[in-house]
């Protein structure tokens, strides 16, 4: 049987990434929104909270350059229904739909129907702005939509190379987002004794867990005590948490090996070796060492590895010319 077309591999990879990105964005916005409301009730101002959302995505500069004003409404619009921002939920779903359209010959009718429906709903929805009170319900819908997509993929997609590539894309995106979320709070987990350690607000750390769907799991492991180091450790190293960096990277590593061996693809050591090294570090490392050596540098390495793996896959397998 003919191997997967390079173009389809590319589309499948980005289908996985775009849907995952939309879901992660909904998670981030949902938690930021809830936190912003608390903050407003307490201090009367939530602008700083929303600035952080822009920070996580490294969008602050672009946001300001485009002459947007930093209000909760504007940031929410920027990340939800904005048609111009390629990082908005609407744009992610539109991109995912475009990927799925190209992939139609390989996808089940159900996958297309559901994703196309999600896209149509969002397009209709974008006719008017989202009221602040609607954010949470909106995010829930998006999360559910993305999870439904993942479920239909799980239940119907033929498990050939396209399935592997799609899951790899999805997990890389997940690792990237979890790293970004921790990075946002990194100033508060500078090594002990250094003056740069920022003032601690523990609710930010529970919010962080919640945005990564990790609060319940965390409590099962650590009980009710929430400390920054433990939260960071949990989100990086916990092998049972679905969205931890370790789980995501180990999954990518395993899938990549299976894909290359199972389909006798030319082994690309430049992609596989550094990824596997990172995997071992995540398996054997612990949060104390990471904090001592510098959290920022560690998270940078994760993000660099995500980029390197993505680029490596593109050059080795997806390139169409």
């Amino acid at each position: 049987m003919l191997s997967l077309l390079s173009r389809y591999a590319d589309e499948a990879f980005w289908l996985g990434r775009h849907v995952e990105r939309a879901e992660n964005m909904a998670r981030l916005l949902d938690v930021t929104g809830a936190f912003g409301r608390d903050q407003e009730a307490a201090a009367g101002d939530s602008a700083a909270i929303w600035r952080q959302a822009l920070d996580v995505q490294a969008d602050l500069e672009r946001f300001q350059e485009e002459g947007r004003t930093l209000t909760p409404e504007e940031v929410i619009r920027f990340y939800t229904l904005d048609g111009e921002n390629p990082g908005s939920i609407r744009a992610c779903i539109a991109s995912a739909r475009q990927n799925a359209l190209q992939l139609r010959p390989l996808l089940s009718v159900e996958v297309w129907e559901q994703l196309n429906g999600l896209y149509q709903d969002l397009t209709a929805r974008a006719q008017r702005a989202l009221a602040p009170g609607e954010l949470s319900a909106f995010c829930s819908e998006i999360k559910l939509g993305c999870q439904t997509h993942a479920g239909i993929i799980e239940g119907t997609l033929y498990r050939d190379e396209a399935w592997y590539v799609l899951q790899i894309g999805r997990m890389l995106e997940r690792a990237d987002m979890t790293a970004r979320l921790i990075d946002l709070r990194a100033p508060q987990i500078a090594p002990k004794g250094t003056v740069s350690r920022a003032p601690l607000d523990i609710s930010q750390w529970t919010g962080l867990l919640r945005s990564a769907a990790g609060l319940h799991g965390y409590r099962r492991v650590h009980g009710a005590v929430v400390t920054p180091d433990r939260v960071a450790g949990y989100l990086i190293f916990d092998r049972h948490h679905a969205r931890s960096i370790r789980t995501a990277i180990e999954t990518v590593d395993g899938l990549l090996r299976e894909l290359i061996r199972g389909y006798q693809l030319p082994w690309e050591d430049g992609i596989a070796a550094p990824l596997h090294e990172l995997c071992i570090d995540l398996r054997e490392g612990n949060v104390t060492t990471v904090i001592a050596d510098g959290m920022r540098a560690f998270l940078d390495r994760i993000q660099q590895q995500v980029i390197a793996t993505s680029d490596g896959l593109r050059d080795a397998f997806f390139a169409t010319s």
Binding site: L2, S3, R7, L265, F317
Partner: peptide
């Protein structure tokens, strides 16, 4: 189902489709 960009013709005038393999 292929598009033009998935195919190429080499110097032996053979048509190929680009796959991940």
């Amino acid at each position: 189902l292929v598009e033009g960009r998935d195919l190429f013709v080499d110097e032996t005038d053979t048509v190929y489709v680009r796959t991940i393999k």
